[in-house]
Amino acid sequence: MSLVKLIKALRYVFVGAFFGIVLTKAEVVAWHKIRAMFYFQEPDLYLIIGSAVATAALLVALAKRFVPRTPFGEPVEVTPKPMHKGVFYGGFLFGVGWFITGTCPGPVYAQLGGGEFFAVFTLIGALAGVYVFAAVKPRLPD
């Protein structure tokens, strides 16, 4: 593998690691913080999501204006998300799962890396869910 290829791969590991450190230090990975969010016991998660969205909106706008390409020449662009029924049905089901496990997809990996062995069950459950989704997808509303 050439050095350029290695760096191209490693940049995703590094940005992912940054994300993992922030999610863990913010305690977004903690079951009790998710419960506290759903029971409106503390505003932290809402403030975190709100300030994350605001910062990301600003940075994405700046990036689109001033950074047309990555250092490796790939285009810097936002992929539009199409409207479909799954955002309602799937979104609702995910919300229930989020409450039960206290964990959304990013934190599943953070819990595993942070030494939370029981997150293995969350991951196995999630992969089973994807497999069943793949099997029934043709019969579901899009």
């Binding site: 799937g90 089901l93 995910f94 496990t101 964990t103 599943v108 069950f121 089973a128 869910g129 989704f133």
Partner: peptide, 15 residues
């Protein structure tokens, strides 16, 4: 965790 994880996987991919 298995049941909730199932909903997380199924739901996020549907959404």
């Amino acid at each position: 965790l298995l049941a909730g994880g199932f909903l997380v996987g199924f739901g996020t991919r549907w959404a």
